[in-house]
Design a protein around this nucleic acid. Structure first.
Lengths: 192, 192
DNA sequence: TGGATTACGTGATCTAGATCACAATCGTAA
DNA sequence: TTACGATTGTGATCTAGATCACGTAATCCA
């Protein structure tokens, strides 16, 4: 399926847009292709876009003291990603985004999103729900962090996204779980 | 300042509403007073409201296996709280909300929020931004969890909300930080 | 094709924080 | 005022996971 159709189906789950309205909405997105390893947002630079993933897998991550990396999100098809803190506050990126695999995305500028939200009530409605879902997911992950040990969080992750196991290197999964790669390695090799 | 004025100033930070529109908006809120310890949402029951805090301090918490409590949020004046997962999915509460101190709140039903969002574009805009701020705060807290040790998180919390130290019992602060009360106690009594 | 970089496994050691146990103090309701 | 529950402090012990160290397999790329 082509990018436009994927976005259309995604948006129409929560917003009512006529074909004309959707065409107008879609006209603000720029399709782009990236190779594995390419960078979409690099820390310290200006952020003015967010990304809707059509294919492939991106990661959004934070690096502490140039040393440890923590993955905030694996962005899969129909997911949105960016450094939203920097995007909304017009500040420099503290979160990086790059490609784990080759990927196609649709880019939307901050300015265009706000313009569209303002022009079309249903677009504002859509983005309210999208953010809402993100908020609930984030809260759930926070609880999981406090509640569960690494093994439980690992199993939870793989139950939710089985593709990840073969798609992304293990040390990235460790970064998502917030543990060292050694601990993760011992975990799934069953050194109980 | 009275409740209506507090809500008005809060909403007008992000939404443009005429006095008439605000009056209409406000007419959907029910003011309520609670005593310390009173319960606003109890786990397992139906949730159909969210709360805007006028005065006092609430907590939103999750209890694991009837044993450990984790605090998701201390809700202070001008903050919103509820079990949003249950609220939006029309399911039973998994998160509880009760009063740490005597409190006054404004109650808004899920149905009325959606009605208002639908009727007034600016109300939808307001709630999009509110959720956005919540999402960013939640993401920040998640990062802090992965990045920082307990001492750093404790200092971060007190730097942000100095009132908490005298307002809420220490074991609740421990529950927010996700550590045992003993560890927290040793922390601020400087058993390095 | 071969050399280098990245990914992964695993042993040894160390540490933050959990857990258990007990005592002291503070509030608040009767 | 009394008494009981809630709150807090602190010692002793235990454990999940970090860190360090090293070796091997896989992958990339000129």
């Amino acid at each position: 399926m082509e990018a436009k159709e994927i976005l259309k189906q995604h948006v129409r789950k929560t917003a009512i847009l006529s074909d004309e309205q959707f065409e107008y909405f879609f006209s603000h997105f720029k399709p782009k292709s990236f190779k594995k390893g390419q960078v979409l947002i690099s820390e310290g630079e200006k952020v003015d876009q967010e990304f809707f993933v059509i294919s492939g897998c991106l990661k959004a991550f934070f690096i502490n003291d140039q040393i440890k990396m923590y993955i905030l999100q694996f962005a899969m098809p129909t997911w949105w990603t960016s450094d939203y803190g920097a995007l909304y506050n017009q500040s420099k990126a503290t979160i990086g985004v790059d490609c784990i695999t080759d990927a196609e995305v649709l880019c939307l500028s901050n300015q265009d999103r706000e313009k569209l939200c303002n022009e079309l009530h249903q677009v504002e409605h859509f983005f309210r729900w999208r953010t809402n879902k993100g908020y609930l997911a984030s809260q759930k992950r926070l609880l999981s962090f406090m509640n569960n040990d690494t093994k439980a969080r690992y199993e939870e992750l793989l139950a939710m996204y089985p593709q990840l196991y073969n798609l992304v290197p293990k040390h990235l999964i460790a970064s998502y779980l917030g543990v060292s790669r050694e601990t993760l390695s011992r975990l799934y090799n069953n050194h109980k």
